[in-house]
Design a protein around this nucleic acid. Structure first.
Lengths: 178, 178
DNA sequence: CCTATATTGTTGACGAGTCAAGCATATTTC
DNA sequence: GAAATATGCTTGACTCGTCAACAATATAGG
């Protein structure tokens, strides 16, 4: 009990936080628009194709959900979309009867490659370009720290399970990534 | 024509970009959940109350839309929600017959103060804590650069107006903040 | 002044992704 | 090895915020 009398952010803290939120919204908005205009793909759809490609062409639904921070239901629907467009196929997992693999088709590989150029160019122009070379390492380390700490807490919270508040009201977004 | 034969992100570039996306999703998700659990407010709702409070209690709809990177329609609906909850009132602008002010009520001020503690604590724990003191300035400057460059381009694109592609397909999110 | 154009805010229709329930398969416990 | 529990994916109902069209007001040009 040493402190906590009056919580407040310094000007720089507030600026960093606000900048983080606005920068994210503006950059993803623009990049999404560019990918749609050039390749008729939403940013989230491209990212799933990219993760699949990086994994050699296939990945399980739950793993995709973890990679892109989405709920299982959300992944089911996006994958269904991409399947209907012919970019991937579903295949059941032989080792685990419950599991489903999303598998890139030839068209999916091609689409991923086509959109990749626009994506890389956009990320550089909208995001990376704004960091001086020696700042990139700071940014990367910072974000990694955030992600691993939040995920560590998720883990330990799952372990300590049960008797947690039911949380959630007025059912909006931002759920547990179940 | 000196380069651009094969676009590619370095490992560090890719890591910074991916970290940015995941960090944002995880942090906002958690903060949103905490605000809902403690104060029954979505993060975006709290942010609007916060911006109103910072502006002395009132602000025009269009300004709110700009502040939080939302479309006009979105702001209309969130403000309607907050009005129904009793946290603010609409008042028409005397100087401009088209304009509408969102005005904090006493309950709105109280709610903002109540949620503020949870918000500040969450931002520190989930976000700021992960930066060493001298890194904060780098982050803040980086995000500011992103925001101002994107907004500068928006501006000049509006100036050069007309004959732009109609863009947008499969009407999803990420629109122009009109 | 009066018509053309731009801006502000609201609304119906819609797509996106969440939630919770459901079903199927795996894993654990006794 | 059977019952209890956990995990993986899907689906109906729902909320959120967008989009496009609209009404009202403001501003510019002749």
């Amino acid at each position: 009990m040493t402190k906590t009398p009056f919580p407040k952010l310094s000007e720089m803290e507030g600026s960093a936080w606000a900048g983080f939120l606005r920068a994210h919204d503006l950059v993803t908005q623009r990049l999404d628009a560019e990918l749609r205009a050039s390749n008729d793909l939403a940013l989230i759809e491209f990212e799933i194709l990219l993760h699949l490609a990086r994994a050699g062409g296939e990945k399980r639904m739950a793993q995709i959900a973890h990679d892109v921070v989405l709920t299982g239901g959300g992944v089911t629907r996006i994958v269904a979309r991409l399947e209907k467009l012919g970019y991937l196929t579903r295949r059941s997992c032989p080792k685990d009867g419950r599991g489903i693999f999303a598998v890139l088709t030839d068209a999916g590989w091609a689409k991923q490659r086509a959109a990749h150029t626009v994506h890389v160019e956009g990320v550089k122009r909208l995001f990376l370009q704004n960091a001086k070379h020696d700042e990139l390492a700071v940014l990367s380390a910072f974000f990694d720290r955030i992600v691993s700490r939040v995920r560590a807490k998720e883990q330990s919270r799952d372990d300590a399970c049960a008797l947690d508040k039911p949380t959630t009201k007025r059912g909006g977004k931002f759920p547990q990534t179940g």
